[in-house]
Structure formats: C-alpha cells, structure tokens
C-alpha cells in the first residue's frame, strides 16, 4: 500500500507555524517515514497542485491570487487543516480589518501603491473553503501538529481541545496572574494549548491561542475595568493576535 500524502501550503504569514515541523528534528524524518510529503516549499519540495490526503495550511488570505489558490488547495486535498492564528482567524494582520480606511494603508507605506496586490481584509481560510480541522495558536506547537497528523494516520478524527487556558494553568499549579498578581490576564477567555507559558513567566496571558468558546468575556471585561484599565485598552488587549471577531466564527 502506498503511503498517505501530505502538503504544507503557505499564505500570508510569518512562517512560524511551519517551524513546528522544521524544528521537530529527527521527528520530521520519522514523519517522512509515515507520510509522503508532496509539497512543502520551505523544505524544498515543490508540487503545488499535487493531490494529497492531508493539507496543512498556514497563513491568511490577503490577495486576489490567494483567493483562487486556496480553492485549488481545497479541491486537491481530502482533509484540510488550517494551522495558526493567521489561517484560523486572519491573524495579527487582520488588525487592518478594523481600520476605517485600510485601503489607505498601502499608500502610507509604499510610494507607488498601484504595484501592490492586497485585499482590504485579511481572512481566515474557512471564509473561503471548508476546513476539516483547526489548529489554534500563534504559533502552533510541534506537539499539536504531530498529534493531529498521527491521529488522522490512525484513522481517527483529531479531537478539538476546547478547554480554557485558565484551567490548564490551574492544573499546572501556577500562581494566578489575574487574582494574585492583579495583571490583565486573558486566560479565562483564551483557548488552552500553549502550556500556560505566560503565567509561568509571571506575566498575563495575551490571548495568542485565540478566543475559547462559551467564555465569559463580559465578566472578564468588568474584572479588567476593576483593575483600572480603560475600556479601549481592554478592547485592544482582547483583539491583538486574533483581532477580528468576525473571522473567528464557527466553521
């Protein structure tokens, strides 16, 4: 029997989630024993239109060309996983979605804006095509990626971890940055998965794993107001790495 096939596609991003694979070390070579990697440009494998069993998609859709390309990726892939903040919610570059006149931004950076192909919005992959599974995080970890791929290779659906960071942090026995430290921690409304890194470093969570479902956002806002934060600062803090709430809708 031939090996299952895998592709890694990049859209607008910092390339950091691909490093979840490139930083795996020998585990990357092990992965290649179990799957045939057809397309992964940064690793040197170029076959963009290959039909594959699993596609990992990094980055958000920000150009007219990308809109076409993501549709081709979808039609060539049996199981499509979006990985990282950019692919799942439009990422930090979706801050331009919140601007009054994002089209003007090009003119403010580039002397000749007519040369630049850029849509007014940065969009999550699911805004254009059906996504089978999402890996949240900025960046995603090697463990998240290998768990999802290994589960699929064993014929099961990966499990979506909907726990909140706050619970992960409590279980790890960290001192609470919000209650004890009085810091504006976003742990109560953020997805788990990072290992509660920021609280372990004595700092408040800034929400890089994205908004958890069914979280008490208004309760946390009140609490942060109680710490003396003005509402606009709270708004900004809650919308940094995953700024555009419209992009985070259910698949």
């Amino acid at each position: 029997m031939s090996k299952p096939t895998l592709a890694v596609h990049k859209f607008s991003s910092c390339d950091g989630c691909q490093l979840a694979l490139l930083n795996m070390g020998e585990a990357l070579a092990d992965l290649a024993q179990h799957v045939e990697i057809k397309h992964f440009v940064e690793a040197g494998l170029v076959n963009e239109d290959a039909k594959v069993d699993i596609a990992l998609v990094e980055g958000s859709v920000v150009t007219a060309k990308d809109q076409q390309r993501i549709r081709r990726v979808r039609s060539n892939s049996r199981y499509l996983i979006s990985m990282g903040a950019c692919a799942t919610s439009g990422g930090i570059q979706a801050l331009k979605n919140l601007a009054d006149n994002p089209a003007d931004w090009i003119g403010q950076i580039y002397p000749q804006p007519e040369f630049i192909d850029s849509l007014d919005r940065s969009s999550a992959i699911k805004q254009y095509v059906e996504v089978d599974f999402e890996l949240w995080g900025c960046p995603v970890s090697s463990l998240q990626v290998s768990e999802a791929v290994a589960t699929l290779l064993n014929g099961a659906e990966p499990l979506d971890n909907q726990e909140k960071l706050c619970i992960e942090c409590k279980r790890a026995g960290k001192i609470c940055t919000l209650v004890t430290g009085g810091e504006p921690c976003l742990g109560p409304v953020t997805r788990a998965g990072c290992g509660a890194l920021c609280p372990a470093f004595g700092r408040a969570c800034y929400g890089c794993y994205g908004g958890a479902e069914l979280s008490n956002q208004s309760g946390l806002r009140k609490r942060l107001e109680g710490l003396g934060l003005p509402p606009e600062s709270i708004q900004k803090r809650m919308h940094l790495i995953h700024p555009d709430p419209q992009q985070q809708n259910e698949r």
């Binding site: 490093l19 920000v62 150009t63 990422g91 950076i109 850029s118 940094l240 790495i241």
Partner: peptide
Amino acid sequence: EPPRFFEKFLEGRHYTEVPDIVARICGI
C-alpha cells in the same frame, strides 16, 4: 509576499505591546 502592514498597526499601541507584535513579523 503580500504586505502585512506592521508599521501601520503598531501606531496607537502601548509600548509594552511592541515586543509581542514585532515578533510576529518573522517566525524564524
């Protein structure tokens, strides 16, 4: 590579947020 406009969305942000924002320019 399409532009991501970091220099624009740094405007209006508090200085304490800068290290977490600029890190996202490059994962490497």
